[in-house]
């Protein structure tokens, strides 16, 4: 059971870690300095969630692994994040589309995970749910302004949404969660979250005068370690220094 619990926490942790890494790329590149601060906060929150989840996942393994062992010394094929978060940064419209999708999904997830029978996950979720509510509000504010701003922003926002939307389905694919963990009240079956997610996001898009994209879902595979070239590039950058000095303390 521990294996599956560890794997579950690892998947959630990888989502947060890779999302934090991409969000962090916006620091010093955002459209307004106030936005550098806001995106910095969001990246820090996601990183904090990643650290808690990875630390927990690693502690359940035998032999144990630390958060850094997991972050820096696994190859792409061992990562369990969804493909949405590893996509390249894109423009600000794509970033806000992704932010809205991710924060809405995480909001649904953590809200349910707060009552997990696993104390550690429940505790992590209780803190995270407040953070992602803020992220969701932030993304919503921008999606509204970009969608219902100028003609140019509307086009760009729609394009960003269309580019990210094929990666939404994978968030709700429950095949990676052990059903026994769900039955035991430890883990959440994400397929049950799709409806409320669609309702919330649909509401924002409608207000923002944006169309729900009618695009084909992309091939998944992230939860099984089948990743795109983008993750390999991201990891090469992220892990390079640590791997050059194995065993060193920083």
């Amino acid at each position: 059971m521990n294996d599956h619990l560890s794997g579950y926490a690892l998947a959630l942790g990888d989502d947060a870690l890779v999302a934090a890494q991409r969000t962090g790329e916006w620091i010093a590149s955002a459209p307004q300095i106030e936005e550098d601060v806001a995106l910095g906060n969001i990246a820090l929150d996601l990183l904090g969630q990643a650290r808690s989840l990875l630390t927990y996942a690693g502690s359940l393994e035998a032999p144990q692994r630390s958060e850094d062992d997991l972050a820096y010394f696994r190859d792409a094929a061992e990562f369990r994040n969804v493909l949405l978060v590893e996509r390249p940064r894109g423009d600000f419209g794509a970033a806000m589309a992704r932010a809205l999708v991710l924060a809405t999904y995480l909001g649904e997830l953590y809200e349910r995970l707060r009552t997990s029978t696993d104390e550690m996950l429940a505790g992590i979720a209780a803190k995270a749910v407040k953070e992602v509510a803020y992220h969701r509000d932030h993304a919503t504010m921008w999606v509204l302004r970009l969608g219902d701003g100028t003609e140019e922003s509307h086009a760009r926002m729609q394009a960003g949404l269309d580019a990210e939307w094929p990666y939404v389905d994978e968030l709700f694919d429950s095949s990676y969660v052990d059903p026994r963990l769900v039955d035991a009240g430890v883990a959440i079956d994400p397929s049950g979250m799709r409806e409320p997610f669609d309702a919330r996001v649909g509401d924002v898009l409608a207000q923002a005068t944006l169309q729900l994209p009618a695009v084909r879902a992309a091939e998944g595979g992230g939860r099984e370690g089948r990743h795109t070239e983008h993750l390999r590039e991201l990891l090469a950058d992220m892990q390079g220094l640590a791997r050059a000095h194995p065993g060193a303390t920083w």
Binding site: E34, V37, A38, N41, D137, H138, M141, R145
Partner: peptide, 8 residues
């Protein structure tokens, strides 16, 4: 947005 930025 000012309120949100101020909070940050």
């Amino acid at each position: 947005m000012a309120l949100r930025n101020a909070r940050d």
